[in-house]
Amino acid sequence: MTAARVRAWLLADAPASRAQARLGRVYLGVAALSKNPLAVVGLVIVAALVLVAALAPRLATHSPYGQDLERRLRPPEDAHRFGTDQLGRDILSRVVYGARVTLAIVVLVAVIVAPIGLAVGTVAGYFGGWVDGVLMRVTDIFMAFPRLILALALVAVLGPGIVNAILAIAFTTWPPYARIARAETLTIRESDFIAAVRLQGASPIRVLWGHIVPLCVSSLIVRVTLDMAGIILVAAGLGFLGLGARPPEPEWGAMVSEGRQFLLDQWWIATIPGAAIFLVGLGFNLLGDGLRDVLDPKAR
């Protein structure tokens, strides 16, 4: 097939299969996205993050853990492009490996949070009544609780570590997702096609799973992408307060925290991982912003 024919197939007015229709939608989305230069920049940054994480062992010039007290606090130079930290570890290598930590946190939080939010929100919205009341009151309580402090408390309870930080962040991030899913469900619930499905005798679970959930997914994806940066920042904040990854794990927030002692004389130790957090956050935000324009034209 030539490119033109592929395009025609993708854009067919009457797709012959579900797969064709879906791919067509994706293609349109990608096409729209590529017209937004900022979103492309975002995509490039996120792709770079994934690549760096995947190729960390090849990109790193040193071991991220290897200490050398003789060569500590070195400024950026040929042997150490980003300099060394207070224990003589190569900062470039640590930042590169840190991409893995960041990526793991973001992905895992998203994987945990979206389904929880979706489940709570759609159930509350679909069933209404006391189910809605109970679920939404619980959501409200979590919303009223100071988020970072709750996350701090949870990590303090669970002990520091990446997994626990992920759990704590997930635990404090789901309520907005539940709200969004509920709002979407409320509008969908009343629509004619749901009534039709219900008349056909579909069970509530079937209606929820087969018809409502898929319709909520796109707005959740936008929200997740937009939230990625926020998640990265909370994770880095926990790391900064000493509650994220355990040393010597090269977590960027913790690296900033370690480097703050040296900010005045060895600026690179805190500044470079901080810049990495910023860059990746920006990447996700640019991408999310573009995605929102594509997937959710109402919010333009």
Binding site: L38, A229, G230, L233, A236, G237, F240, G253, V256, R260, L263, L264, W267, A270, T271, G274, A275, I277, F278, G281, L282, F284, N285, L286, D289
Partner: peptide, 18 residues
């Protein structure tokens, strides 16, 4: 706006102080 959404506040504070 997006920069504001992306920057780690503790890092911005440190750099600002510096």
């Amino acid at each position: 706006v997006l920069i504001g959404y992306s920057v780690p506040v503790f890092w911005l504070g440190l750099v600002g102080l510096l």
